[in-house]
Nucleic acid binder design. Structure first.
Lengths: 232, 232
DNA sequence: CAGTGGTCTAGACCACGGA
DNA sequence: CCGTGGTCTAGACCACTGC
């Protein structure tokens, strides 16, 4: 089990500080030669390290040492910019899709919408320290927030909801599942299809219990850790 | 990208009902032949399906179609037996380790213990429908629950806490992270080291805010989905 | 354009599971 | 004891990245 040995050696080098977070590893061919093995075996080791969250890959760009994950507290409404800043990182957001459309089946179900409802469909890539780590798909009831898309969509949407539409969320439910990226989302995150991912589905309801927004957050699995607290 | 094709074909067969949950797939060699490819490429496809949670493997036993995951609601104290039952599954528990020892560093930190504190150290394998899906490591303050290990440790511990020690938990915090199994835990779950896993770290405090129990739950990543709700 | 990662082939040996 | 999954070798071609 050579690949275990390779894995441990790389972990060791990271812990000893020889390989800092964000560093790119040498090419697979060079690594394979260093460890006197073939690329297939080397990639086995790298995949293991990826699954552990120690390294990650950028599609066709190579392998990199992972950063410390962002800590998310699900008990308080979060926005990635403020959370990142509080943890000494910087975040930015790219809007990929923003359109107002008839609700698709998925959105209609999750929001319990009447037929032919219009929703805003927004997709954004979120970067932390310049690295794309999360892809979010938003479905927002259009009747409550008619002119939403005229605003700057790259910021915290809840600010727009509050300031412009006097819309506040009273309740939020999360679904969390461990999966992997499909092709489209992987591409948007410069990841590879099949890379491990964490899916956080957020459902926001207003004071009347009406679901106003649903967000599907696809995280690179090593970029995030969740905290939840419950009292009884 | 042949392995995408293979992957899709298998997904198709599952959705069409040809492959029921729990079924074992044919051997890798046979599958490789069916798809006119090599085992390496076939395993690439299978690994992708494993990452997606569609199939899972038992070490040296083969590949199986995944069942529907257990839904866990973190907002209410759960026990796997009752949760499984409510979802039409049956659960059982094997005690692997049960001893009273001096707290190790990990336990002492998480529980804010004074030096030389004694704790109960319990490790259990949890099975759903006969399949090992979760490995739990418990650290329990021994001073609050002196005779804990004399009881039947394979049941819901909180019942023993409540009935025997009049100990109730008032607060629970969770940490959730996506990782992979290390060798020991993989073995206990008949999984392979490096297989994707979900780690849920539970910390239980009593009414006085004293941490009485810490549990590290290592789940097969496709065996569980989390639900959380928060009000503001 | 050189080098890289992504993909694939056609084998091989071993240790373990299950009959 | 047979077949299986786990591991490994030594190559190859292609499309893309980054210079």
């Amino acid at each position: 089990m050579q690949y275990i040995k390779i894995k441990d050696t790389i972990v060791e080098q990271i812990q000893s500080g020889l390989l800092a977070a964000g560093t790119k590893l040498p090419s697979e061919r060079k690594l394979a030669e260093s460890f006197k093995t073939t690329r297939v075996t080397l990639r086995e080791a790298l995949s293991l390290l990826e699954a552990e969250g120690v390294i990650f890959r950028e599609d066709r760009r190579g392998w990199f040492i992972a950063e410390r994950p962002i800590q998310l507290d699900l008990m308080s409404a979060y926005h990635i910019h403020t959370v990142a800043q509080a943890q000494g990182k910087s975040a930015s957001t790219d809007v990929v899709v923003s359109k107002t459309v008839m609700a698709n089946k998925e959105a209609a179900e999750k929001m319990a919408l009447p037929p032919f409802s219009e929703i805003h469909h927004i997709e954004r890539t979120h970067l932390v320290d310049g690295r794309p780590v999360m892809y979010a798909i938003h479905y927002v009831r259009a009747d409550s927030t008619p002119s939403l898309l005229d605003h700057d969509i790259s910021q915290d949407l809840s600010v727009i909801f509050a300031n412009t539409f006097h819309l506040r969320f009273a309740q939020c439910t999360y679904g969390v599942a461990s999966t992997s990226f499909d092709k489209e989302i992987a591409q948007a995150l410069r990841a590879t299809a099949g890379a491990p991912a964490l899916l956080i589905a957020r459902t926001h309801a207003d004071i009347d219990g009406v679901v106003q927004e649903v967000v599907l957050e696809h995280w690179r699995h090593n970029a995030v850790a969740l905290n939840v607290s419950a009292g009884f």
